[in-house]
Amino acid sequence: MVYKIRDKETGKVYEVTIDEETNEITVYDVKTGKPVKTVNMTIEELKEAGYEVEPV
Results as ranks from 00 to 15, higher is better:
Met1Thr: 12
Met1Glu: 08
Met1Ser: 10
Met1Gln: 13
Met1Phe: 12
Met1Cys: 14
Val2Asp: 07
Val2Cys: 12
Val2Phe: 12
Val2Asn: 11
Val2Tyr: 14
Val2Thr: 11
Val2Ile: 13
Val2Gln: 11
Val2Ser: 10
Tyr3Thr: 04
Tyr3Ile: 08
Tyr3Lys: 01
Tyr3Glu: 01
Tyr3Gly: 01
Lys4Gly: 01
Lys4Tyr: 13
Lys4Thr: 10
Lys4Gln: 12
Lys4Leu: 14
Ile5Trp: 03
Ile5Arg: 00
Ile5Val: 10
Ile5Phe: 05
Ile5Cys: 07
Ile5Gly: 00
Ile5Asn: 00
Ile5Pro: 00
Ile5Leu: 06
Ile5Ala: 04
Ile5Met: 06
Arg6Gln: 08
Arg6Met: 08
Asp7Met: 02
Asp7Pro: 00
Asp7His: 14
Asp7Lys: 03
Asp7Tyr: 05
Lys8Gly: 04
Lys8Arg: 11
Lys8Thr: 08
Lys8Asp: 02
Lys8Val: 08
Glu9Ile: 14
Glu9Arg: 14
Glu9Thr: 14
Glu9Lys: 15
Glu9Trp: 10
Thr10Asn: 06
Thr10Asp: 04
Thr10Cys: 10
Thr10Tyr: 02
Thr10Ile: 02
Gly11Lys: 03
Gly11Leu: 03
Gly11Cys: 07
Gly11Val: 00
Gly11Tyr: 02
Gly11Thr: 01
Lys12Pro: 00
Lys12Asp: 11
Lys12Gly: 05
Lys12Met: 14
Val13His: 06
Val13Glu: 14
Val13Arg: 03
Val13Met: 08
Val13Asn: 04
Val13Ala: 06
Tyr14Pro: 00
Tyr14Ala: 01
Tyr14Arg: 00
Tyr14Thr: 01
Tyr14Gln: 01
Tyr14Phe: 09
Tyr14His: 03
Glu15Thr: 15
Glu15Asn: 15
Glu15Lys: 12
Glu15Pro: 05
Glu15Val: 15
Glu15Tyr: 15
Val16Tyr: 04
Val16Met: 14
Val16Gly: 07
Val16Leu: 10
Val16Pro: 00
Val16Asp: 00
Val16Thr: 01
Thr17Val: 12
Thr17Met: 09
Thr17Arg: 13
Thr17Trp: 14
Ile18Ala: 05
Ile18Thr: 04
Ile18Asn: 01
Ile18Trp: 15
Ile18Cys: 06
Ile18Met: 07
Asp19Ser: 08
Asp19Lys: 08
Asp19Leu: 05
Asp19Phe: 06
Asp19Ala: 04
Asp19Trp: 06
Asp19Gly: 02
Asp19Cys: 11
Glu20Arg: 12
Glu20Met: 12
Glu20Asn: 10
Glu20Leu: 13
Glu20Gln: 10
Glu20His: 12
Glu20Cys: 13
Glu20Gly: 09
Glu20Lys: 12
Glu21Ser: 13
Glu21Ile: 14
Glu21Met: 11
Glu21His: 10
Glu21Lys: 13
Glu21Asp: 11
Glu21Tyr: 12
Thr22Tyr: 06
Thr22Cys: 08
Thr22Glu: 05
Thr22Phe: 06
Thr22Val: 06
Thr22Arg: 14
Thr22Ser: 09
Thr22His: 13
Thr22Pro: 01
Asn23Ile: 04
Asn23Cys: 08
Asn23Leu: 07
Asn23Gln: 10
Asn23Phe: 07
Asn23Pro: 03
Glu24Gln: 13
Glu24Phe: 11
Ile25Phe: 04
Ile25His: 01
Ile25Asn: 00
Ile25Val: 08
Ile25Gln: 01
Ile25Cys: 07
Thr26Cys: 06
Thr26Lys: 07
Thr26Ile: 10
Thr26Asn: 04
Thr26His: 08
Thr26Arg: 07
Thr26Trp: 07
Thr26Val: 10
Thr26Met: 05
Thr26Phe: 07
Val27Ala: 05
Val27Arg: 01
Val27Trp: 15
Val27Glu: 03
Val27Lys: 01
Val27His: 04
Val27Ser: 03
Tyr28Ala: 03
Tyr28Phe: 09
Tyr28Met: 10
Tyr28Asp: 00
Tyr28Thr: 07
Tyr28Leu: 10
Tyr28Val: 09
Tyr28Lys: 06
Tyr28Glu: 01
Tyr28Gly: 01
Asp29Leu: 02
Asp29Arg: 01
Asp29His: 03
Asp29Gln: 02
Val30Gln: 12
Val30Asp: 13
Val30Met: 12
Val30Gly: 10
Val30Phe: 11
Val30Lys: 12
Lys31Asn: 13
Lys31His: 15
Lys31Pro: 09
Lys31Val: 15
Lys31Arg: 07
Lys31Ile: 15
Lys31Trp: 14
Thr32Lys: 01
Thr32His: 04
Thr32Ile: 03
Thr32Ala: 03
Thr32Tyr: 04
Thr32Asn: 06
Thr32Leu: 05
Thr32Pro: 01
Gly33His: 09
Gly33Ala: 04
Gly33Gln: 06
Gly33Tyr: 04
Gly33Arg: 07
Gly33Lys: 08
Gly33Cys: 11
Gly33Phe: 04
Gly33Pro: 00
Lys34Leu: 13
Lys34Ser: 08
Lys34Asp: 08
Lys34Pro: 01
Pro35Asn: 04
Pro35Lys: 10
Pro35Thr: 07
Pro35His: 08
Val36Tyr: 07
Val36Ile: 15
Val36Pro: 01
Val36Arg: 03
Val36Cys: 15
Lys37Met: 15
Lys37His: 13
Lys37Ile: 14
Lys37Phe: 15
Lys37Gly: 12
Lys37Ala: 15
Thr38Lys: 10
Thr38Asn: 06
Thr38Ala: 05
Thr38Tyr: 09
Thr38Pro: 03
Thr38Asp: 05
Val39Gly: 05
Val39Cys: 15
Val39Ser: 05
Asn40Met: 12
Asn40Leu: 12
Asn40Val: 14
Asn40Glu: 07
Asn40Asp: 04
Asn40Ser: 10
Asn40Thr: 13
Asn40Gln: 12
Met41Leu: 08
Met41Asp: 00
Met41Gln: 04
Met41Arg: 05
Met41Ser: 06
Met41Phe: 09
Met41Asn: 03
Thr42Gln: 03
Thr42Phe: 01
Thr42Met: 02
Thr42Ile: 01
Ile43Gln: 02
Ile43Ser: 03
Ile43Asp: 01
Ile43Phe: 07
Ile43Tyr: 05
Glu44Ser: 10
Glu44Met: 10
Glu44Gly: 11
Glu44Arg: 08
Glu44Phe: 08
Glu44Tyr: 07
Glu44Leu: 09
Glu44Trp: 08
Glu45Phe: 05
Glu45Trp: 05
Glu45Leu: 06
Glu45Tyr: 04
Glu45Gln: 13
Glu45Ile: 05
Glu45Asn: 08
Leu46Ile: 08
Leu46Gln: 00
Leu46Pro: 00
Leu46Ala: 02
Leu46Val: 07
Leu46Ser: 00
Lys47Tyr: 11
Lys47Arg: 13
Lys47Asp: 05
Lys47Trp: 09
Glu48Cys: 10
Glu48Gln: 14
Glu48Trp: 09
Glu48Tyr: 08
Glu48Phe: 09
Ala49Asn: 09
Ala49Val: 07
Ala49Lys: 09
Ala49Asp: 06
Ala49Arg: 09
Ala49Ile: 08
Ala49Gln: 11
Ala49Pro: 01
Ala49Trp: 12
Ala49Thr: 08
Gly50Met: 04
Gly50Val: 03
Gly50Asn: 06
Gly50Phe: 05
Gly50Glu: 02
Gly50Leu: 04
Gly50Pro: 01
Gly50Gln: 03
Gly50Thr: 03
Tyr51Met: 05
Tyr51Ala: 02
Tyr51His: 03
Tyr51Gly: 01
Tyr51Thr: 01
Tyr51Gln: 01
Tyr51Ser: 01
Tyr51Lys: 02
Tyr51Pro: 00
Glu52Gly: 05
Glu52Leu: 06
Glu52Asp: 09
Glu52Cys: 06
Glu52Gln: 06
Val53Arg: 02
Val53Ile: 11
Val53Thr: 03
Val53Cys: 07
Val53Ser: 03
Val53His: 02
Glu54Asp: 08
Glu54Phe: 14
Glu54Gly: 05
Glu54Asn: 08
Glu54Met: 13
Pro55Met: 12
Pro55Tyr: 10
Pro55Gly: 10
Pro55Arg: 11
Pro55Ile: 12
Pro55Thr: 09
Pro55Trp: 10
Pro55Val: 12
Pro55Asn: 09
Val56Lys: 05
Val56Glu: 07
Val56Ala: 11
Val56Arg: 02
Val56Leu: 12
Val56Met: 12
Val56Pro: 08
